[in-house]
Nucleic acid binder design. Structure first.
Lengths: 346, 346
DNA sequence: CTGTTAGCGCATTCAG
DNA sequence: CTGAATGCGCTAACAG
């Protein structure tokens, strides 16, 4: 009685082979359902092997398999916070897709800390995962090189930097912005302002593009004084912009904000200034940060929303394709549907 | 040029050894920071090895290591829906703890389907994970046997069946119920009814126990007509119970419901009957299902909440201990703090 | 149609 | 203080 371990040793493919009286090769073939080419296992043998598997309760060791095949069927979804309302939806979608393709998914929250993100990505090759979906505010493409070099497939969620060997999945920013503004126009607004991010930001540029496009489509003149360019992260930027707009000789009756944060600040300032929202001032937001912020403000914010299901599924899809592709794939950009959420502010 | 693969081969410990001019054994020792006993690597060698690791960008292969050591440092968190508001919090907590202990966590949503749950658990030994935290409504202890036999550590979240080789982490159901009722008593209610789950349910029994305990503590007579036993999953059970209570010759002024669903149904019926909540009828719920349900109803539901952080951390803690323990550990039950959420309904 | 065999990359016993 | 040798469990040539 020298055994201290309580659990008996797990059965190996050799055990199965011995029990049936065939070789491990045969076992391996039936386990993996190989049959093409020169590989033909008689149906009788297959059955016997399967019985033995059952009898011994044999389960292949993924560690051994991974070591051999360089394939872990493991993928990583990394984002700032799993607690953000968008991310669980994204995770669910990724998971669903991954499961279809027989992948497990490791989820990692970086808490939006650059250091944790870097450390995690750095340790990724060691983990032996096949691919990773990155949703990050910090990401710079340099960090991706080592992943790609280590043979890890990468898909980037959102408008973060592109990389020649990674895919991006995102929504059509310009189109979404255009729809938001068109909605305001449909509500009979003509004097519509916008609060947008800086030119240097890809998102900011695209959203402004959509704003201009919508106005022009409906024959409304684009006026510079109605376009407020603001820094996304500047405290109270939205309020500032709204203040400026209200001071105009002819203020707008509606505002399309390039981010929910802009929108909420602007909305609050409008209300504090004695305006009724949406009667005196209609406000549209744009998905950015937690959904709850948009629903917590009164009146609730109408805004653009990404479809987490589509984005997640698309990301997983691209990732799996990339993992399965033997040759280097070109970088792909996948545009996914968005939608307008009509709440109370517009 | 026969190479089709684009990425160069990853460095192995052999490569590192070669570069330094030592053996793989030495490399292995310094990587794993072994030093006790007869193992002594000179500081000089250590440094050189570390340099080589850096130079070659060497990362140990976890697959190989797992195969060798029977340790994947991978753990699974399984629950019905990642989209439920409680579960991301739980996941975050588990993750945080797991990370401290150098574990990655695979998250799996069963969509509350028994079949998917069973299939996943069944495939677990093959995945080579070290342990699993199970949060399930369906779980029966039979399914756990094969996990335990396969040497996978198991921790059960909540009051699902216990298992001689698994731990449970949960809140003190009876105490929580007692507090809820005590709160109602503190608000000057004396005629307090309860809607509880069936006797056969452990949760139901414990919560009723707490209810009775609170009344007795404050010298209030327990009256059978004020105790409604209902099936958790029966449609509209809470409304039915409230109806019955309102029909009493002397109806209660407060109700402690054994689940948020009961509570919400009851609350709605009370309001539809022209009662003001909480003025005419105070209602306390009890954590069960999505938080959002409790906050969406008007007035917002006061209820008992589990602390996801504590529960998650405790679960991960127990799991890691179990994984690290060589010998069989006894089954442990860990009770975690809960709290009352005072909203509007009581 | 099936068996033999050689590693995958690492941790570890046992010799030096 | 360090190295040589072995095998974890599996897959995939290659050889029948």
């Amino acid at each position: 009685m020298t055994r201290t371990k309580s659990s008996k040793k797990r059965a190996t493919s050799q055990d199965v082979a011995d029990l049936v009286g065939v070789s491990v090769t045969t076992v391996s073939f039936v386990i993996n359902e190989k049959s093409g080419g020169s590989v033909r296992i008689s149906e009788a043998t297959r059955r016997k092997v399967r019985q033995a598997v059952e009898a011994l309760n044999y389960r292949p060791s993924s560690a051994a398999r991974t070591l051999r095949t360089k394939r872990s069927n493991l993928l990583v979804l990394m984002f700032p916070y799993i607690e953000s309302p968008y991310n669980p939806l994204l995770a669910a979608a990724v998971q669903r897709k991954a499961e279809e393709e027989n992948f497990d998914v490791i989820i990692y929250s970086t808490r939006d800390e650059l250091r944790r993100e870097e450390d995690f990505l750095d340790a990724m090759p060691s983990r032996g995962v096949d691919g990773v979906i990155i949703h990050s505010h910090h990401l710079c493409s340099a960090g991706l090189d080592s992943l790609v070099e280590a043979g890890i497939a990468v898909v980037i969620h959102g408008n973060s930097p592109t990389h020649p060997s990674a895919d991006n999945v995102m929504i059509d920013e310009a189109e979404a912005a255009k729809e938001a503004v068109s909605y305001l126009i449909a509500k009979d607004h003509v004097r519509i302002a916008t609060i947008v991010g800086p030119e240097v930001s890809w998102m900011g540029r695209l959203r402004k593009e959509g704003y201009v496009d919508a106005l022009q489509t409906y024959g409304i003149t684009v006026e510079d004084e109605l376009i407020c360019e603001m820094d996304y992260f500047r405290q109270g930027a939205g309020a500032l912009a709204m203040q400026k707009l209200l001071a105009l000789s002819e203020p707008p009756t509606a505002v399309f904000a390039g981010s929910d944060r802009f929108a909420i600040d602007a909305l609050l300032l409008a209300i504090d200034s004695g305006l009724a929202v949406p009667e005196d001032m209609a406000i549209m937001g744009y998905d950015f940060g937690p959904e709850s912020e948009a629903t917590r403000v009164r009146p609730r914010l109408s805004t653009i929303r990404r479809d987490a299901n589509l984005l997640g599924a698309a990301a997983a899809q691209l990732l799996v394709e990339r993992i399965n592709s033997q040759d280097t794939l070109p970088s792909r950009q996948k545009i996914v549907n968005h939608r307008i959420v009509h709440r109370q502010s517009a």
